[in-house]
Design a protein around this nucleic acid. Structure first.
Length: 369
DNA sequence: ACACTTTGACCACTA
DNA sequence: CTAGTGGTCAAAGTG
């Protein structure tokens, strides 16, 4: 809550600085969007968000080759709103691609468009979640509700749809991810606060980058738990929706439970959580299975938790190198696992927190090596 | 003082 | 070997 507002303010401040080069673009863009999507006066928000996010990228990019996509991204994000949802069709096939590339937002599903149009602020989606940390303008309560409802509906439509096909992965992933975040938050909004911890863990963002293939900037998060080697990559559409989440490593601790988890509906949470025993690492049963399967190669997975929410976890195959730290960590022999099972479904509360002793070795070390 | 985010720069890997 | 890319670090800033 606070964060959002503050951020929004901050954003505003920041904007002037950063935006210099691209400002004009933004506006034109925003205008376009606004025009296309809708002309609600309130639209300002989206603009602000965008500006907030983008400025930096746009501005700095020149210095090195490094950020090729940046400028685009900025716009991309803008346009992305529509885009984000649109992938659906695009996703050509392969599961893998889903992870790596995101189809560009060429097409937008009609439904999406209509929704957006109606929503006008579509941004809201993300906002619901605590995560929206990034730049979400504060929304009125009403707005939230509206959005949430709309979102849910929209999501439902998309998800439910027969797509079912695994191949749709990209789409599904996104959607699912969205659901994951949203549900928890909406339901139990409070739990995590700002951080993108819809999954129940606390994450600290340690980096963000515009990835070439993707429209959205990718954010890198580490689990804040002391020894926990788990990292995750999150790509978020400008509207705050999560386009993609990739978990790396396993949590060697149970989810930190926010002081109050029960309160809200926690719809399926309870059920799922049951299985968590004290011993249980965060690794869900299925995760283990996954590990076996996927081990070397990356893989994406989908699961339905008790609730019925689809849970997807993606993890990178790259394994060996990435995990080296694991060597440090020792624990994760396998591969990354998604904590999702617990996270989404509910909290798995494990009583056991820190299993392992040694910290993950400084990433540094890894580099040095 | 602490925790976290932001973000440019650096490093490692791969084609 | 070079260039491109992704992942991570760490300083600066914010709350």
């Amino acid at each position: 809550m606070k964060m959002e507002i503050k951020e929004s303010e901050r954003v505003v401040i920041a904007k002037p600085v950063a935006s210099r080069p691209s400002c004009s673009n933004f506006r034109s863009f925003s205008e376009l969007l606004a025009g296309a999507i809708n002309s609600s006066p309130s639209d300002d928000f989206p603009e602000t968000e965008v500006a907030a996010i983008r400025p930096k990228t746009a501005r700095f990019r020149p210095m090195v080759n490094r950020a090729p996509g940046a400028s685009v991204s900025s716009q991309a994000e803008l346009s992305g709103t529509a885009v984000s949802n649109s992938f659906n069709k695009v996703s050509s096939t392969d599961s893998k691609s889903t992870i790596i590339y995101k189809p560009q937002a060429k097409l937008v599903s009609k439904a999406t468009v209509s929704v957006l149009a109606n929503m006008g602020n579509f941004n809201a989606n993300s906002q619901q979640m605590s995560q929206p940390v990034e730049t979400r303008p504060q929304r009125t309560k009403q707005d939230k509700r509206n959005f949430s409802s709309q979102l849910t509906t929209s999501n439902l439509h998309q998800n439910i749809p027969s797509h079912a096909e695994a191949e749709q992965t990209s789409e599904t992933l996104r959607l699912t991810s969205l659901n994951q975040e949203e549900d928890p938050k909406t339901s139990s909004h409070a739990s995590n606060g700002d951080r993108p911890s819809f999954d129940g863990y606390n994450w600290r963002k340690y980096g963000q980058k515009q990835v070439k293939g993707s429209e959205y900037p990718r954010s890198y998060y580490k689990c804040t738990y002391p020894n926990c080697p788990v990292k995750k990559k999150v790509e978020r559409s400008f509207d705050g929706q999560i386009a993609e989440i990739v978990y790396k490593g396993e949590h060697n601790h149970s989810k930190p439970q926010p002081p109050r988890h029960n309160s809200s509906g926690t719809q399926g949470l309870g059920a799922v959580s049951d299985r968590n025993g004290p011993d249980r690492n965060s690794t869900p049963i299925w995760s283990n299975q996954l590990n076996e399967r996927n081990e070397g190669s990356g893989g994406r997975e989908e699961n339905l938790n008790d609730i019925g929410l689809p849970v997807h976890s993606i993890y990178q195959g790259k394994a060996p190198p990435s995990y080296d730290p694991a060597g440090t960590g020792s624990v994760n022999a396998g591969a990354g696992t998604s904590d999702n099972s617990c996270g989404v479904s509910g909290e798995c509360d494990d009583g056991s927190k820190g299993l392992e002793g040694d910290k993950d070795e400084p990433k540094r070390k890894r580099k040095e090596n």
